[in-house]
Design a protein around this nucleic acid. Structure first.
Lengths: 245, 245, 245, 245
DNA sequence: GATGAATGAGATTTCATTCAT
DNA sequence: TATGAATGAAATCTCATTCAT
């Protein structure tokens, strides 16, 4: 019965014939007063809800404005279309990602286990907050080039940071750190989705386990509850990775 | 300001959107001869091609029939819409998943490493074949209960099989096998996507690395090229991992 | 002969026809301003014209919007489809039916003849106005429960009102008033249709005759031109039916 | 969701560009063997069922062949389209109507009451048998001219026969016999429909009442249970109608 | 700033009818 | 005779986007 996903897809490509309105008010450049800001935020929030509920593609501009309790016309006052709004949300999310990357890159060499747990925790927390966006990550790929670029950049930075850390902290010699990094990010990201989908918990304990798995996976040794780090640990550890060879 | 004076009224007109008309031709019960089967298969194949090319959402029924070199009407003779076709393909995919599970469950106890590599390879091959479907898999969840069920079942079976295998082959005691299983499946699934997205290779070597990672992650010891398994294997390598315990 | 060798198989593909997509714009809850109301009314009016011209079934949504001088999309802003619009019109019609019932129920006891003529006239006028709808009324029954209910209710009220009036004004003892009421309504309704179909007139004179027929049918005495009501009328009347024999 | 009644309506007018197939087998002229006749009858029966279930317009050729447990192609072997089949059924029904008319026209002058009851009974029985067709009578009007003609002829004959009978048996002078005839046929026809719709019975007793109503309506005197006809009846009867004035 | 109205391109879907087997 | 396959014309319906108020 006329599903018409068509128009959407199509539209983004086909039906954007007119440049952002000759001049006047390109949504970006609008000077906003208090009320305007509130409205815009309402739209952002509503979008998150809508994306979570129906997925990005299935979400209509109409769904968003309904949730935001505003009107169709208002939407276009702040965003030039759905994709524009998505982009705004993604920018926000990827910026936070940078914070997480710092957890690893700022870590003093060889503080391994705890950093990892912290990183896992940070990522998890981000995921939870942006679940609607991350959950549809895949849908987004192939949307428009700009979004793809955004995702790709963010991902590259993240895996690079992780790969660096792995290298520094001692990777097993049968695994390329950058492959390992991608694998870990993949796991972390998808794990949240699957676990949630299967109805399992994603709590502190689970994150501990996850950290242990990651630890072993990329370094070859188990994580350990905080505080139990044995003396000599730091020395012993990177060793196998480099000397075992 | 306009908003107050425009008294909102529950419109008088309208009601339910009228269901799709009992589907004059429920493709359901169609008797099919050879020719019909061929056409149906052509449509399935065409759909895979189309989904691959432009993604599920952007694909129009029209694209599919064009590739299948048949007419619009014919499509609806075999599937009631694009989603229906997708569902059919997903069923096919999940059925193949069962085959993969056997790789682990049929493995004689303790043959660990090689089975794992075989399993990773099998999954990878499946993923490659059904990539266009697996990407959207998740977003269908929620919109279509039938698909949700399908996915959920398949996933549960898969993780159960893996968890069993982990248990038998010796899981580290700091990780619940079923959590580990979810993590591994998550990693495997998403890795393909990310790696592809980032433009990296997913070849035999990559799969070897992946297997090694998984091996260490869930068992605590590295995978190794077949036949090279040395006596005393476990002691040498993960030493930190095992001795630390 | 072909039939045997062609083994019938329950097709594998396909399933439910997928519901209409939660109706992005359920015209339901639309807030309407003056302009909107006018447009909606224009559509209603146009529909009546179109239905009259070509009949409900042969009428395309397109015909309606053309008459209303508006666009396709606009139609769906106010009604979810042709049937929905029809329903709205029917509601209107049944509401007017209530008015007609009052002619009888408000009548002081025993004012018989004139009330009857008035009622016949009122019904006729209603019929004329809604002819295009009334013709299809019945065939909607069964396909649409809501319409069925509407019709059923309206009909029941109408026959109840008439039956009550018959009882009060003296029914012959060989006929159940409620059967008589159904018969009269049936006659009135169908008469217009047949008469029109046969090309005969339905004017004041015809209605006089109709009223006379009804009068005799349910009370047993002829109607009479207004003003000629003889004294003792009320007594004399039921009499012929029972005692005149 | 694409109700597409369009095609049907339209089709009858638009999509019949090709003459009944150059020569070969105009469905009418087919010499049929036993099997063929059976199939054709199955199709007729199925059509009655289908029309009853969904109404004529809503019935798809597909519905019919499904009920008849035959194939699409076969249908067109016997009928050139749905309308053709309808016509065939109507011809059958209207022919029987002629029989009913005879009940009145063959009646010796002045045998009034019993003839009327017989006629009512005959009509009722016919209605019951052809309910699916008669119930959709209205839908049919305006279908194609041929069908309209068929209905119109039949109706005219029927009312003519009745009008003649009324005249002979003594109509009240305030009612034109032909108007009365239309009214009576209208009532009879619609009564069955409404009564059935409202869940009321249409049995012998009901028919007695109906006959009584008709009797009074057009002749001005009540019907009477058979056998109770008082002497002098015939004389007394038309009297009240004329003298009452 | 905000809003409801309007538009129309374009996708989806139905189903009568023809045909090859 | 009978049948399933195929076709395509023509409807239906959705939704992003613009506009006047």
């Amino acid at each position: 019965m006329g599903s018409t996903e068509a128009q959407r897809e199509a539209s983004s490509g086909r039906r954007k014939p007119k440049e952002p309105t000759p001049a006047a008010f390109p949504p970006e450049a609008r000077a906003m007063r208090e009320q305007g800001k509130r409205t815009m935020q309402r739209l952002r929030d509503a979008a998150m809800v809508a994306f979570e509920r129906r997925g990005y593609h299935a979400t209509r501009v109409n769904d968003i404005v309904e949730i935001a309790k505003t009107s169709h016309g208002t939407f276009y006052l702040y965003f030039s279309n759905k994709e524009d709004l998505l982009r705004a949300l993604l920018v926000e999310a990827t910026e936070e990602t940078r914070e997480i990357d710092k957890v690893l890159s700022d870590a003093p060499t060889g503080t391994g286990r705890d950093d990892l747990r912290a990183w896992v925790g940070a990522y998890s927390s981000l995921w939870m907050r942006y679940a609607p966006l991350l959950g549809i990550w895949t849908e987004l790929t192939g949307s428009d080039p700009e979004v793809t670029q955004l995702l790709s950049d963010s991902l590259r930075k993240m895996t690079a940071a992780l790969a660096g850390w792995i290298e520094v902290n001692g990777a097993p010699d049968d695994v390329d750190p950058s492959v390992a990094a991608v694998a870990v990010v993949a796991m972390l990201d998808r794990f949240h989705q699957l676990q949630t989908f299967l109805g399992g918990p994603v709590d502190g304990g689970t994150l501990d386990e996850l950290a242990a798995i990651v630890q072993r996976a990329v370094l070859g040794s188990p994580a350990r509850p905080p505080g139990t780090r044995p003396a000599g640990d730091r020395l012993a550890e990177p060793a196998p990775a480099s000397s075992a060879r």
